[in-house]
C-alpha cells in the first residue's frame, strides 16, 4: 500500500510541474500586453518607461529564464504581485481559495448525501414509480441551467421564506473569525463562537445548494447505475444466500462494490465545482476564487491568472491523488497495479 501511495505521489508531482509550464507558456504567448494594461495607453507610448518596467519585471530576459525565475519563486511560495489588488498573488489565493473550497466542499457533501442516497434508492427500487420519479428528478438537476436555479432558489428561500440570506459569507458588518483554515464555519467553531458558526452556515447553504444541483443529478445517475451493476453480481446473491440482513447486504456488500466509480465522479465533480464557481459566486456575491479569476481575466492581471490556473490545477491533482489512494484502500486489486 505504501509503495502504491508513493508511486501516485511521484506521478502527481510531475503533473504539477507540467501544468506550471503550460500555464506559464500560455500566458506568455497570449495576445494582450500586460504592460499596456498596467501603464495605461499614454505611458505605454513612452519607450523609456516601458523599457524600465520591462527590466523591472524581468520581461526583457529570454522566456526560459523568465520561467525558471518564476519557478524559483513558486517553490518559495511567491507567485508574483497581483496588479488589481497590489498584493502578492499567494495572499489573494489564501483569502479567496478557502471561500470557494468551503462552498465547493459543502456542495459536494450535499450532492453526495442527496444524489448518492437517492441513487441507491432508485437502484434498489429499480423500475418502480419511485425509480421513475427519481430519474426525472436527476435529469432535471443535470439539465436546468444554474442561473435559473439560483434565481428560483433565491426568490423562494431568501426573498419569500426568508430562511437563508442570499449574499456574502456573513451578514454585512460582521467581522470574520480569526483565520486558521479560511473556512468561516470551521474557524468560527475553532474560536468557540457558535452564533457566528450558525451565521456562516446559513450563508453557505443557498449557494452550495445551487452549486450542487447538477452534481446531485450526475451523482444520482452514476450511483444508480453502479449499484444496479453490482446488485446483479453473483457475490450479492451469495451474501443473500448466507442469510445476512438486507442492511448488511446493501451497505456491506453492494455499496462496497459500487463505490469505486462513484468516487471517481465525486472527485472530478468536486474539482470542477471549485473551478466553475464563477457564476454562483457572482450571483451570491461570494468572495471566492471564481470572482477573483473573473476580475483577473478582465483586467489582464497575468500573475493572478497564472496563480489561479496553478491553484485550480493543484486542486485537480490533489483530488486525483486522493481518489487514487481511496481506490487502493477500497479495492485490493487496484493496489497491485
Amino acid at each position: 500500500m505504501l509503495m502504491f501511495v508513493l508511486r501516485r505521489l511521484g506521478a502527481s508531482l510531475l503533473l504539477v510541474l507540467g501544468t506550471t509550464i503550460v500555464a506559464f507558456l500560455l500566458t506568455s504567448v497570449l495576445p494582450g500586453d500586460a504592460l499596456t494594461a498596467r501603464l495605461g495607453e499614454r505611458a505605454a507610448a513612452n519607450a523609456e518607461l516601458v523599457a524600465k518596467l520591462r527590466a523591472e519585471l524581468g520581461l526583457d530576459r529570454p522566456i526560459w529564464e523568465q520561467f525558471f525565475i518564476y519557478l524559483g519563486g513558486l517553490v518559495r511560495g511567491d507567485l508574483g504581485l497581483s496588479l488589481q489588488s497590489n498584493r502578492p498573488v499567494t495572499e489573494d489565493l489564501a483569502q479567496f481559495g478557502p471561500a470557494s473550497a468551503e462552498l465547493a466542499l459543502m456542495a459536494t457533501v450535499i450532492a453526495l448525501v442527496v444524489g448518492g442516497g437517492l441513487g441507491i434508492v432508485a437502484a434498489l427500487r429499480n423500475n418502480t414509480w419511485i425509480d421513475n420519479v427519481l430519474r426525472a428528478f436527476s435529469l432535471g438537476g443535470v439539465s436546468v441551467p444554474l442561473f435559473w436555479f439560483a434565481l428560483v432558489a433565491t426568490s423562494i428561500f431568501s426573498t419569500t421564506l426568508r430562511w437563508f440570506p442570499s449574499s456574502g459569507r456573513l451578514d454585512a458588518g460582521v467581522a470574520a473569525p480569526p483565520h486558521v483554515t479560511g473556512f468561516f464555519t470551521i474557524d468560527a467553531l475553532l474560536a468557540g463562537d457558535l452564533p457566528l458558526f450558525g451565521q456562516a452556515f446559513e450563508h453557505l447553504i443557498l449557494p452550495a445548494l445551487v452549486l450542487s444541483a447538477p452534481m446531485v443529478g450526475l451523482l444520482m445517475r452514476f450511483t444508480r447505475a453502479s449499484v444496479l451493476d453490482v446488485v446483479g453480481q453473483e457475490y450479492v446473491r451469495a451474501a443473500e444466500a448466507k442469510g445476512l440482513a438486507p442492511r448488511t447486504v446493501v451497505f456491506g456488500h453492494v455499496l462496497r462494490g459500487a463505490l469505486v466509480p462513484v468516487i471517481t465522479i465525486v472527485g472530478t465533480a468536486f474539482a470542477s465545482l471549485l473551478a466553475g464557481t464563477v457564476l454562483v459566486e457572482q450571483i451570491f456575491a461570494w468572495p471566492g476564487i471564481g470572482s477573483y479569476a473573473y476580475r483577473s481575466a478582465t483586467t489582464l492581471d497575468l500573475s493572478a491568472i497564472v496563480g489561479v490556473t496553478i491553484f485550480v490545477a493543484l486542486v485537480y491533482i490533489v483530488v486525483n491523488f486522493v481518489t487514487d489512494v481511496l481506490y487502493g484502500a477500497i479495492d485490493p486489486r487496484i493496489r497491485r497495479a
Binding site: R237, K242, G243, L244, G252, R256, G257, I330
Partner: peptide
C-alpha cells in the same frame, strides 16, 4: 435458514466471492 441450515455453493468462484472483502470477513460474517 439461509447460510445456517442450508448453504449454497455457486458456479463461478471468480464472481461468487466479493472481490473487495477479506477472506476472513467472507468466512465469518454468516
Amino acid at each position: 435458514l439461509r447460510g445456517d441450515r442450508v448453504a449454497m455453493i455457486f458456479q463461478d468462484p471468480m464472481t461468487s466471492l466479493h472481490p473487495m472483502l477479506t477472506i476472513e470477513r467472507q468466512l465469518t460474517e454468516h
